[in-house]
Write a protein that binds this DNA or RNA. Structure first.
Length: 591
RNA sequence: GGUCCGGUAGCUCAGUUGGAUAGAGCAUCAGCCUUCUAAGCUGAGGGUCAUUGGUUCGAAUCCAAUCCGGAUCACCA
């Protein structure tokens, strides 16, 4: 139990003993004591004054004395300032915490809770390579999955690959027209980039064709449909749906190139999936559900034969689920896939990591799932994240301002290499160790930069800031960890023992922070928010660095102090590593 | 226009069951390497928490209105 919870419980019990009344945790607040006051944790008394009819001083004194009497192992002293009861936690409590947990690499993690959750993330299109926006998505998805695991969930990471549709046909048509058989091998390009280039090529040529037609007097709307490239694309889409062998062959070939490219990127950024869905397999799902539910009255049919659901009583509009020609729309297959996920894996919860431009869509999806009685519908969550923008504004593929994922990764690793070599600390590393280290630091910087911000907020990606390795960054925390490891490597850690020594401020500050780690993991899961972990880990690293410059481990004042500080160092390293692991960031033993 | 999200230091961001004098990082300035890794530490300056009103012992936090920015409201995906 966290110290906040213990303190709440102790306060409730003490109040009951003193005044014979039941209180709940909502009747009063427990906070960390502000640094300029004496004490560690504070009970705010104001809200209790009316219920007890006492003055702050009287209540504070009664409660403080009772807490000390009944929980002498927990508290050592108290003081009252205005309506704040500041309590000092006893040193033996902190020392015990340290003794029990400093070597526990699972500290803060919950045992399995028997619940299964699917986290869907990444969801790329197979017509272009991944970009900066995908990176935020991938890092969030992966991290949330880890955070949920740490909270005892069984997690399935899934991915839906948008491998069909008009946009895919566009790159296929352009390749046919302009590529002269170019392949990833012949061009020495990554497959996803090669295909992406032809998607761009399509748009360029198509625009030219439209312009020509318009210049020759055709109306723009007509020109857009009549341009030869568009006509052949539409035809190809029909042929694909009809299963024409040559089209499928080309489609398979080009998608294969893309997957080879994606695999390289995913491996580099550390994304992986337990389940992969392909839209080419799922795009017909959901129609049967609509038919069944139509009979039950959940959906209704309009005169033209199209099928709708009326969500106006839930504050939304009517939503189309089947076109008048009986074909399905985007949401139809999502309904079908949601059901399939349940039937295949019996999941209790489903999380979709999708940009906030789809908030409305996801709201509708959840509502429909509830209305058709999908068992886990109430536990469908949209982890909605804001767009990544550049200091100059939004990324626009038209203007070539899209930040390519592969290029960015390489740039981060190169920067890590540059800084590391300049520091001159790794001269004895082997080639392999160096490559590994540069990747660890470069990826660490990038992941931390993208995860340290609250997901739901749109964020600005500043290229100069993102390669910064000082301050609130991944490498700062990695560096702190490497420093600790360097200390610990030189010492033989004595067997764990219970200590009986007093704590200096920098020592105590770290323990207080370490105690909060389990609560932070809990909070991060509740909010589906990795930035809570990032902020916490940074704060802990800061505390340790302060400690490090003020106090010595190796040359501690006494043998007992040395053991204390070693325990502190080891536990801090463990927590930093666990925390960063939840963000998908590796820690170097040396840097 | 309806709905949703956001507005906190020059910049990027923390800050929720409402709590004490609003915090970090970057940038700026001043210091600290003979001592466990200076990718570090210490200090200084920097704020109308968008605005106005309300709720109360107490509001960046809750409520209302207004202003600004964004997303969305497709028989696109």
């Amino acid at each position: 139990m966290s110290i906040t919870n213990s303190l709440q419980k102790a306060t409730r019990e003490s109040l009951a003993i003193l005044y014979g009344k039941e209180f709940s945790d909502n009747d009063f607040q427990v906070n960390v004591t502000r640094p300029d006051f004496e004490g560690d944790y504070t009970v705010v008394l104001f809200s209790l004054l009316k219920k007890t009819g006492l003055t702050p001083d009287k209540l504070g004194n009664d409660l403080g004395k009772e807490l000390l009497r009944s929980h002498s192992h927990l508290f050592s002293s108290f003081n009252i300032i205005k309506g704040f009861l500041n309590l000092e936690i006893s040193e033996s409590y902190w020392l015990e915490l340290l003794y029990l947990n400093h070597n526990d690499i699972c500290y803060g993690k919950q045992p399995l809770n028997g619940k299964k959750v699917m986290v869907e993330y990444s969801s790329p299109n197979t017509n272009k390579p991944l970009h900066l926006g995908h990176l935020r998505n991938n890092f969030l998805g992966w991290s949330v999955a880890e955070i949920l695991k740490a909270n005892g969930y069984e997690v399935l990471k899934s991915c839906i690959i948008n491998d069909r549709g008009i946009h895919i046909c566009k790159s296929m048509i352009a390749w046919q027209e302009y590529a002269n058989g170019e392949t990833p091998e012949s061009s020495e390009k990554k497959g996803d980039h090669l295909v992406g280039d032809y998607y761009v090529k399509f748009n360029d040529e198509y625009k030219k064709q439209v312009k020509e037609l318009v210049n020759s007097g055709v109306k723009e709307e007509v020109a857009e449909k009549d341009a030869p490239l568009m006509r052949s694309t539409q035809l190809m889409l029909q042929q694909w749906e009809a299963g024409k062998p040559e089209v499928l062959e080309l489609w398979n070939k080009m998608n294969g190139w893309v997957y080879e490219g994606f695999d390289i990127t995913y491996k580099k950024i550390g994304s992986d999936f337990d389940v992969k869905y392909f839209e080419s397999n799922t795009y017909l799902l959901g129609k049967d559900i609509v038919e069944q539910e139509l009979a039950k009255g959940t959906f209704f049919k309009k005169e033209d034969g199209s099928v709708w659901i009326d969500l106006s009583r839930d504050g939304l509009d009517e939503k189309l689920v089947l076109r008048k020609d009986g074909t399905s729309v985007y949401i139809t297959q999502d309904i079908g896939l949601a059901k399939q996920k349940y039937e295949e894996y019996k999941i209790d919860q489903s999380i979709y990591v999708i940009g906030d431009e789809q908030n409305y869509h996801m709201k509708v999806l959840k509502l429909i799932c509830q209305k058709i009685g999908l068992p886990y519908a109430n536990d469908i969550h949209h982890l909605s994240y804001g767009m990544v923008e550049l200091p100059t504004g939004k990324m626009k593929s038209r203007e070539g301002t899209v930040v390519d994922a592969d290029e960015l990764v390489e740039e981060m690793i190169a920067t890590a290499k540059h800084h590391t070599e300049a520091s001159g600390k790794v001269k004895d590393f082997s080639e392999e160790e160096l490559t590994d280290l540069f990747e660890t630091i470069g990826m660490g910087a990038m992941k931390f930069y993208l995860l340290r911000v609250d997901p739901k907020k749109k964020m600005i990606f500043n290229p100069e800031e993102s390669i910064e390795f000082h301050g609130f960054t991944g490498p700062f925390i990695q560096y702190t960890y490497a420093r600790i490891k360097s200390i610990v490597r030189k010492e033989t850690i004595p067997p764990a023992e219970r200590l009986n020594t007093s704590l200096l401020k920098p020592e105590k500050d770290i323990i207080i922070s370490l105690e909060q780690f389990p609560s932070v993991i809990l909070q991060a899961a509740k909010e589906l928010n990795p930035s809570a972990i990032a902020n916490y880990v940074f704060g802990l690293a800061q505390l340790f660095n302060t400690f490090y410059t003020v106090l010595s481990v190796a040359n501690a004042e006494s043998a007992e102090k040395k053991i204390l500080r070693l325990q502190l160092a080891v536990m801090t390293a463990n927590v930093l590593k666990s925390g960063m692991q939840l963000l998908g960031i590796k820690m170097p033993e040396r840097m």
